[in-house]
């Protein structure tokens, strides 16, 4: 089943030198799977996520042939209707929890507010839900964390709180934009485990935006590789190291590796042809290799 279907998504910004196309014709379907979106800065990966959530600010413009959530168009909805979808049906986790949490509200109040905004209900119900969510993201002492202010928790804890907050209304899709880049490796594993379990247990669709190829290869089911606003290659995550597009290969090769020391790292030679050209699509055995 397809949760989200996007065809020919374009995001453009007017500049003094003409229009700048941040996203140039992106098409993909998201099922109940972990979909990785990989690319370098400026590749349009974050902008794709923002466009789906209707978070592209004017003068930026979003156009698409199709952008449907469960068969219902969510392209350029009026802000009031988009707000009902954002958070309740599609949630987003950002890179740095420091900038996403309100510094003058306790963690508990914020999660409860997020929940009641979408689900309504009594205060004590929201409180139970918030505690349940904090437990779901492996916070050992949820009562104490509920009463804490954002500056009193660590980065990894903050990111888990963000995830708890985003998951409180039970969204169908979670868009995570570099959710672990600001975290240390040891904390990273925990946060990923939590998201992984949520996809499996709740049947959520996850769009995982990251610049970290190895991480995406290990964590996701399917990967889209973006370059200059386009998807240049899509393939099953487990096959990432057999990628066929020279850009994907170049990115993988330019990573230093502990197991294979080399004197010089191969440098990516960018080619103009990559900007256009067709998407290399791996013929997958199933449409959604992670299973539905």
């Amino acid at each position: 089943m397809t949760l989200l279907s996007v065809r020919n998504l374009r995001v453009t910004f007017p500049t003094r030198q003409g229009t700048f196309e941040a996203v140039r014709g992106v098409s993909f379907d998201l099922g109940r799977e972990r979909l990785g979106v990989v690319g370098e800065s400026g590749s349009g990966k974050s902008m794709t996520g923002r466009a789906i959530l209707g978070l592209v600010r004017p003068p930026g413009r979003v156009t698409a042939d199709r952008m449907e959530l469960d068969g219902q168009s969510i392209l350029n909805l009026p802000e009031r209707r988009m707000r009902r979808i954002r958070g309740r049906r599609i949630s987003m986790v950002m890179q740095d929890p420091k900038f996403s949490l309100n510094p003058v509200m306790t963690v508990g109040d914020q999660i409860m507010e997020a929940y009641r905004l979408h689900a309504g209900g009594a205060k004590h119900a929201a409180r139970d839900k918030a505690l349940e969510m904090l437990r779901a993201v492996q916070i050992r002492d949820p009562e104490r964390v509920m009463a804490a202010y954002p500056h009193e928790v660590s980065g990894g804890m903050g990111q888990r709180i963000m995830i708890a907050m985003m998951l409180a209304p039970d969204p169908e899709i979670l868009i995570a934009d570099e959710p672990t880049s600001a975290l240390d490796v040891s904390v990273r594993t925990e946060v990923l485990n939590i998201m992984d379990r949520l996809v499996r247990d709740r049947g959520m669709g996850l769009i995982f935006i990251s610049h970290d190829l190895n991480l995406v290869a290990q964590f996701c089911d399917r990967v889209l590789i973006m370059y200059a606003g386009r998807i240049v290659e899509t393939l099953a995550a487990k096959d990432l190291h057999q990628a066929r597009h020279p850009y994907t290969q170049g990115l993988l090769n330019s990573l230093p590796r502990l197991d294979a020391p080399q004197d010089r790292l191969p440098v990516l030679q960018r080619q103009d042809a990559w900007r256009e050209g067709d998407t290399i699509t791996q013929s997958l055995d199933t449409e959604f290799p992670g299973g539905l």
Binding site: E40, L255, R264, L265, V267, L268
Partner: peptide, 14 residues
């Protein structure tokens, strides 16, 4: 920096 740029800078430093 991006990984491809990282490779360039690491090579330069070496």
């Amino acid at each position: 920096l991006d990984v491809s740029v990282q490779a360039e800078i690491l090579n330069l430093l070496a």
